[in-house]
Structure formats: structure tokens, C-alpha cells
Design a protein around this nucleic acid. Structure first.
Lengths: 351, 351
DNA sequence: TTTAGCACTCAAGCATGAAGAGTGCTAAGC
DNA sequence: GCTTAGCACTCTTCATGCTTGAGTGCTAAA
């Protein structure tokens, strides 16, 4: 049961108007803003139909209409036009990200920052899911007796480290020996295949007291696993405070609490992302988002790639009344710039 | 021109009441809550005097009084009673911080977190000012050709690292040589004494092309200097949204923007801290804070120590109508726990 | 099928009035 | 001379009712 052409046009116009004004759209206002060659009465009839069909909602009798989740869904699926960025807009983003040196974290922070600035909404960047990347190096460096820096280098070119404490009678030589053993044993193994058991078996030849050895292995294991933690960089949350949607402070508080809760947003996006969708963007609107506290919001996310199978996400969170087409074009562009950067690092690093 | 005893009692009672209710305090309500053995009329006269003297303000005729900045100042300077924490409260904090392993960053995050939770206000922890700490180790570890992890170990037991890019034809041996040279040359020098010149002169014997050498030296220098960056960990900002002071969303936005602006709060606290005040707390109230956007707030901060001369800060930001005595006692306790932890690390690390 | 016209609905703004909380002042009491 | 009861006065808050205007839905005519 698809909408006829005229209904589509009207729905599109209503979404556009509502996005820019945040006020319910009236039939008269609509024909003034758009050249439909129809009277307000006709438009009224169409709007009434659209409401019946579930695309529009009416806050109260005798008010204009606002789009429902279904209305927005129709809009983003088949009505909106996604423009490419202007050269200037592209240049701004490219310049901002080019300042960032090769470090992935820095790149993601900058990307998130740029995205929020360009769209005016909340932006986020998720560190890559590294489960499928494999270990390239593991170094354990003794800082002082009892204190060791574990450095983990992954195939994706990602470097993570972690300071750990071990018994202080372990000598640097012993440490180097264990470290070497673990590295050789695990090199080439993907993170998802590394368990405490594989770590332990990698170092089975080391001649050290069991308790001591176990502690070190556990720390190494933790350091490796920690590399797989999803990190999220969020920016521009304060902008939400200026939107009429959140003029009610308790709503704002609720939103902010949800955004700040560790792992909620990152976990959701992580689950929502299929391993195989590359490059296309994904939109979730209002109630489609299963997170309590974000049902007045919409998500637009996409995926960037670090090598073949390794990917992370960038995204934007805004009000349902979001400038979807602008967000999509901005986000797609940022994605592309990130990918280019990462390809370049990769080339430099020789794979 | 000091207040007489009765005026002090009344001012204290007014502050206490206003802090807990957020409503202007009326003479009648005051005598009902406190056993003054005075009629409301007498209290009214005293309140009128206190207003004349600048300790109280009246939002409008025929409303109760609220404390002015001067009133709060008198309160914190000589009226409030600071209780010690109950054993349970102390236990909660101690437990939370004991989970944190030896890493300073982790400890500070936990401390900030606990502080915000215990007080209900915004909390913050500043990384130590490391200018006066000296370099103990500098390691440069080649991750892959062209990519080097620079690890800086400071006297305070602080470890910082930074991933840098260098020309990829530099061999691990050359890198090791330079790294060793810089380390030997700078070891024992305090961060404030290390400049690009000292770094360069430390490696003057290295036989490498100038351009290459300079780049590496610059990266090493940057990594060292970066260790001195003030980092701030803030927690509980969302709580401010529930206070009547910020029920006006534009005020909230203004506050949040100020808190989020990089370096504003940390810079202010840094400047406000004298190098020699150890252990005592510092309070800044309303307009005393020279940051636009925080004039409706109060600061309570104190200093923790990492060794003799190295110190950082923890603090709380809340509404002027803050439970000062509670905050002071909590913050003093957290300070003490942090210091104990750090002393312990230090003992373990042998200085 | 479209549209002009009209009755109806509802939110928002405004003035009005009553209630209540609180003060300041005055005069009487201790 | 300090304290306090009593009262007039002020100002906010809340509810009420009224008006205005924006917007719809329906009907009948083009």
C-alpha cells in the first residue's frame, strides 16, 4: 500500500517544514511555503488521509500535523534527497582531520568533533571492533621493579598499552623471556581466539614458580583483552540543551544520563551493526531505538574500515526532527575521509 | 566590624535552611526550625540588619532572605562545623579507591567518581603538575618501521607514552642509540628544565643526518612535554540539571558549555592553587570565581601530593547553595586516601 | 476532484481577584 | 532599652474566565 505521488510530496514538505520550524505544520502554511497549486482545503484532506495511514500525528484537534516515526521512516527511505557536500564543506572536514597524526584515537576524536560541529547534533565515534584482528607484537617493558608496561600491537596497526604491577623480585631478563614466549606463542592469533588458556600454553616452557608465572600471564591476558574494549568518543551533547524537544529539563536530564551511561550507546550501535554492511548508512528513528531515554531521538550511523574485516562506527544522535539528508551526507563524507586516512597509514605501514 | 553572637547564629541558621530548601528563609520559618527563644519580630529586625550589612539579600519585598556571597563567605570562614565522616562513609570511599590499581589515572578517576557520588555535586580531579618532577627513563620502542612508541617515566612514578611517526628507514639499532643518548643526557632533569635545546644537546654525538635526527628529537621532546599536560577528570555534571538553580535551561547550557570548555576549569584551579598550601581546602564562592558562567557556583578544592613538590588537585563544583561542611569533610577524606595510596606506591617503588 | 465558506476546537495570552506568605513599623510590655 | 504582639502593606502565586487567533473538518457548490 504505497502512497500516491501527491501524498508523498506533501509528506516530504511537512517533514521538511517541521524539521526547520519545530512547530506543527498547518495546511495553509504549507501551501504558502510550497508551490503545490492546491488549496489549503485539499491539502487538509490529504493530511487527514496521511494521519489515518499513520504517517502524521496531530498533537491536538485544531493544530497542525507533525510526522510520526513512520512518517520519518518513509521520508528517509524514499523521499529525501541527499546532496553531496559543497567543496567548502568538504574542505573544512578534510582539513580538520588532516591535522590529526596517524594515531587512530586522535583521528576518531577529531572526526567526532567535526561531525558534531558540522551537523549541530551529538556525534560519536566508536573505536574499531578488534576481535578479528590478530596479535603482531607483545612487549613487556619493566619500568621499575614490580611495575611493567605491557604493549600490545595488533594487525590493524593499533597499539594499546597498560601499566601493571607484578612481584618486584622478577628480573628484567625473566620478564623478557616470558614476554618473548607469549609473543611467539600468540603472534598471528586473532583476539577472539586468545583466551587465558592459550596465553598459558604459550608460556608453558618458562621456568618460573607457578604463582608468579600465573600472575604475569593473567596481566598479559588482561592487557590483550583490554585492547578489544569498545571506546566511544562523543561530542556536542550540550547542543541538545538548545533544542525545543529538550526544553523540559527532566527530559534533558534523562537524555544526558542515558548518553553518559557507559556502554549503552556503544553497545547498541555495536549490536545494530552487521558485520557485512560496508559503506551504507543506517538510520534508527524514535521508538525504533530500543534504548529507554533515547526514544525522542534518532540515530544515523555508518561504518569505517581498518583493513578487511575490522570496522568501527561513526554516528550522529539528534532529535527525531533531524536534518537527515544533511547528516547523511556529512557522515558519509567523514567516513570516506577516515577510510582514506586509514588506508594511507596502512600503505605506510606495509599492510 | 564583626557580627555579634546572635547575628552569627541567625546567619548560620539561614544558610543552613536555605541550603536544604532552596527557598528564601522567612523569620517565622526560622524560629520554628531553630530554638532561638526569640519572636519572629526580633529575628526580622536582625535579618534586616544582616541585609543592611551585606550578608543577606531579599529577592523582593515580602519574601524571605537568602545569603549573599558575603554571607556564605562568613559562613564557611567561621560559622560552619565540619564533621568528620562517619565510619561507613569513610569505608565506602576507601573501598572504592582500593579497587583501583596503582595507576594514577585510574585512582583519580575513581576519586572523582566517588566524590561526585558522595556529595551529589560535580566533582573533578586534576592530574599532578609535573613541572618539578624529573625524568627517570625515556624509552623509544619501534612498533614497526616508521612507528615508534615513546615511553616517558617520571620521578613521581608517572608513566606516559605517545605514538609517533618517524622516517621508516631508521633502524631499531639507530633508534636505540638515540633513545639511550637522550635518556642519559636528560635523566634527573626536571620537566621545566627540559627544552628543545637540552634535548638536542643530549644527543649531539649521534651520527645521523641532521634532518632525521631533528625530527626524532622533536618527537621525543613533544612526548616529554606532553607528560606535563594538565588532565582533568570530571564527574556528575548531569546532577546540576536537577537543581532549581539551573531549572532555566539556558543557564544550564551556559554552565555546561563552560565546564566542557577545555582548560577553563583546570586552568583556573591551577592558578588558584599556591604551591605551598598543602592539605587545607580552598573555597571560592559565586562572584569570587572569575570565570564567566560559573558565577552561580561555588568551588571547593584541595591538594593531593605525589612526592615532595608534586601536587595535583581534587575538587567539587556545586551551586552556591552548597552543603559546604559536608563537601569539605568528604573532600578532605578523599584527599587523605589518595595521599595514602600514593605514599604506598612510592614505598613499593622505592622512592 | 477541487475548493470556498463556515462552524467548531483548542492553545495561548491577558486581566482579574483571592489567598497566603512575609515584611516593616508602631506601640505596648518587661 | 530590648522584645514582641498586632496590623497594615507588599508581592507572588494560583485559579478563573475571557478573548483572540490559528487551524481543522465538513458541506455544498463549481
Amino acid at each position: 500500500m504505497s502512497l500516491d505521488q501527491r501524498k508523498k510530496l506533501i509528506l516530504q514538505a511537512i517533514v521538511d517544514d517541521y524539521v526547520s520550524t519545530a512547530e506543527p505544520v498547518a495546511s495553509k502554511a504549507l501551501i504558502e511555503r510550497h508551490d503545490f497549486r492546491l488549496s489549503s482545503a485539499t491539502v487538509r484532506n490529504e493530511m487527514s488521509d496521511l494521519e489515518q495511514l499513520g504517517y502524521l500525528e496531530q498533537p491536538h484537534t485544531s493544530s497542525g500535523r507533525i510526522p510520526s516515526d513512520k512518517g520519518y521512516r518513509e521520508y528517509v527511505d524514499s523521499l529525501m534527497k541527499v546532496d553531496r557536500l559543497t567543496d567548502e564543506e568538504g574542505e573544512i572536514i578534510r582539513k580538520r582531520l588532516s591535522e590529526s597524526f596517524d594515531e587512530l584515537t586522535g583521528l576518531l576524536k577529531k572526526a567526532s568533533n567535526a561531525l558534531s560541529e558540522q551537523t549541530g547534533y551529538v556525534s560519536l565515534a566508536l573505536s574499531p571492533r578488534l576481535r578479528k584482528s590478530y596479535l603482531k607484537q607483545l612487549k613487556m617493558m619493566m619500568i621499575e621493579p614490580g611495575k611493567v608496561l605491557v604493549v600490545v600491537v595488533l594487525s590493524a596497526g593499533v597499539v594499546k598499552d597498560r601499566l601493571v604491577r607484578i612481584p618486584d623480585y622478577l628480573t628484567p631478563e625473566q620478564l623478557a623471556q616470558i614476554s618473548k614466549a607469549i609473543e611467539t606463542g600468540l603472534c598471528g592469533k586473532s583476539l577472539e581466539d586468545i583466551t587465558l588458556v592459550t596465553v598459558t600454553s604459550a608460556a608453558k616452557d618458562a621456568r618460573l614458580p607457578d604463582a608468579l608465572l600465573n600472575q604475569i600471564l593473567f596481566e598479559a591476558y588482561t592487557a590483550i583483552k583490554q585492547a578489544d574494549n569498545l571506546e566511544i568518543y562523543m561530542d556536542g551533547t550540550n547542543r541538545m540543551l538548545s533544542l525545543p524537544e529538550f526544553s523540559d529539563i527532566s527530559r534533558a536530564r534523562c537524555l544526558f544520563d542515558t548518553l553518559a551511561r557507559d556502554g549503552i550507546v556503544s553497545g547498541y550501535i555495536n549490536e545494530m551493526t552487521q558485520d557485512d554492511d560496508k559503506g551504507s548508512y543506517m538510520i534508527r528513528i524514535g521508538q525504533e531505538i530500543s534504548i529507554e531515554g533515547l526514544s525522542d531521538c534518532s540515530f544515523v550511523t555508518t561504518t569505517y574500515n581498518v583493513g578487511e574485516k575490522i570496522a568501527g562506527n561513526i554516528g550522529v544522535i539528534g532529535p527525531r526532527r533531524m536534518e537527515y539528508s544533511k547528516v547523511v551526507s556529512q557522515i558519509s563524507f567523514v567516513r570516506q575521509v577516515i577510510n582514506n586516512h586509514l588506508d594511507q597509514f596502512k600503505a605506510l605501514n606495509g599492510g
